[in-house]
């Protein structure tokens, strides 16, 4: 049991150090590299969908399939919770 814990600790420290090194090698904060798609959205969302809120136009129009999957996941989780507690709460 103790050796297992030591092995886990060494693996965790290795993971932590690697991920910390990668954090110091990231690009500087606040300067995105590739933004052509987002520039298109910001420039054209008002003519194409008529919404002032660009985030909403992406969520419900440009990337509607993501929102469909998300709503389905939420619905499935709620169905699972109701099925799990069937007969328990009235």
């Amino acid at each position: 049991m103790k050796t297992k814990k030591i092995i886990f600790g060494i693996a965790f420290l290795l993971f932590f150090s690697l991920i910390l090194v990668s954090a110091f090698q990231m690009r500087p904060f606040g300067e995105p590299v590739l933004s052509e798609m987002d520039d298109y959205f910001i420039a054209n969302a008002q003519q194409e969908t008529g919404t002032n809120n660009v985030v909403t136009s992406i969520v419900f129009d440009y990337r509607g399939f993501d929102t469909l999957g998300e709503a389905t996941v939420l619905f499935t989780a709620i169905c699972a919770i109701i099925a799990l507690f069937r007969g328990v709460s009235k």
Binding site: Q46, T49, G50, T51, N52, T56, S57, F60
Partner: peptide, 22 residues
């Protein structure tokens, strides 16, 4: 309604399907 391009105070009657989906 056709939304005015640029910074505007906002019109409730725009957006097409988006407000209904909201």
């Amino acid at each position: 309604n056709v939304s005015s391009v640029g910074i505007n105070p906002g019109d409730m009657n725009t957006g097409g399907v988006v407000p209904l989906m909201n």
